[in-house]
């Protein structure tokens, strides 16, 4: 177990907000780094905490077509999808602070209701060209 009992209880509480099913896809590599295996194990523990989330593990090389379709070119990568692919990706083991974001991503992908002001949502609704946001972070 990667998650402590306390972590699991906290995540379960967050997951009470889940609505629609969520699919979490982990891209890994057979002979990938240890973080690939850790990411698989972590996501597996998380999806087991709810019956609304499912998990698929794909291989970056063997499943190249799907990797391309998801815009994934390195591992470990985690794709969080709800009613549709909203474009949420994690690269690297989502631990520590990023674990909180992974849980939050699963919740918002499930509800489809972003916690943003009306003004922000209206401005974003007007976007007509692609926006690719990269957030570089560390676990602590």
């Amino acid at each position: 177990m990667i998650l402590s009992e306390k972590d699991r209880e906290a995540v379960k509480k967050e997951f009470e907000k889940l609505a629609d099913p969520v699919k979490v896809t982990v891209f890994s590599q057979e002979l990938g780094s240890e973080t690939c295996q850790q990411t698989e194990r972590l996501v597996r523990e998380v999806v087991l905490l709810t019956d609304k989330a499912s998990m698929e593990v794909l291989n970056l090389v063997l499943d190249r077509e799907k990797a391309n379709a998801y815009g994934v070119d390195r591992v470990p990568a985690v794709v969080v999808e709800g009613a549709k692919d909203y474009g949420i990706r994690f690269f690297g083991l989502p631990a520590g602070y990023e674990f909180t974001n992974l849980v939050d991503a699963i919740v918002v992908a499930s509800t489809g209701k972003p916690a943003l002001s009306q003004e922000t949502q209206a401005a974003l609704a007007g976007l007509r060209s692609p926006v690719h946001i990269k957030v570089f972070a560390t676990p602590t």
């Binding site: 474009g87 994690f90 690297g92």
Partner: peptide, 15 residues
């Protein structure tokens, strides 16, 4: 990631 849900145009990568 909340913005990504709000707009189909937005993709959010956490690295």
């Amino acid at each position: 990631q909340h913005m990504a849900v709000a707009s189909d145009q937005i993709r959010a990568d956490c690295i």
